[in-house]
Amino acid sequence: MSSEYRRITKDGLWDNNIVFAQALGLCPLLAVTGTATNGLGMGLATTVVMVASGLMISLLRGIITPQVRIPVFVLIIAVLVTLVDMSMNAWVHDLHKVLGLFIPLIVTNCAILGRAESFASRNTVMKSMYDGLMMGIGFTFALVLLGAAREILGSGTLFDNAAQLLGGWARFIEFTLIEDYKGFLLIILPPGGFLVLGFILALKRLLDNKFAERKQKAINSISEFQPES
Results as ranks from 00 to 15, higher is better:
L201D: 02
N209P: 05
I103L: 12
S118Q: 13
E213N: 13
D15S: 10
L166A: 03
F102M: 14
E224M: 14
P28Q: 02
R214H: 13
A142I: 08
R122D: 11
I173V: 15
Y130A: 01
L101P: 08
N123M: 01
L30M: 09
L75S: 09
G12Q: 00
L177M: 08
W169V: 11
A31I: 15
T108G: 13
A21L: 08
V98H: 06
A52S: 14
T176N: 04
V98Y: 09
M129L: 01
V68A: 06
A162H: 04
S221Y: 12
P71T: 06
E213D: 15
I18V: 14
V74N: 02
F211D: 02
S87W: 08
F194K: 06
I77S: 07
A52K: 09
G41N: 02
G138P: 08
G100S: 05
L29W: 02
L165I: 02
V49M: 00
G12F: 01
D15E: 13
A23T: 15
G198I: 03
L44E: 01
I137V: 15
I8G: 03
L165C: 00
K215I: 15
I152A: 09
K210E: 12
F102Y: 15
Q22C: 07
L207E: 01
T140I: 11
S229K: 11
G43L: 07
L145C: 10
G39M: 03
M50H: 04
F20C: 03
V84H: 10
G34Y: 06
L203S: 03
L80W: 05
T46Q: 05
I188V: 14
F199L: 14
G183D: 00
I18N: 04
R205P: 05
A170G: 09
M1A: 09
G34L: 04
F159G: 07
E228S: 11
L186Q: 07
N220D: 11
T35H: 03
I70P: 03
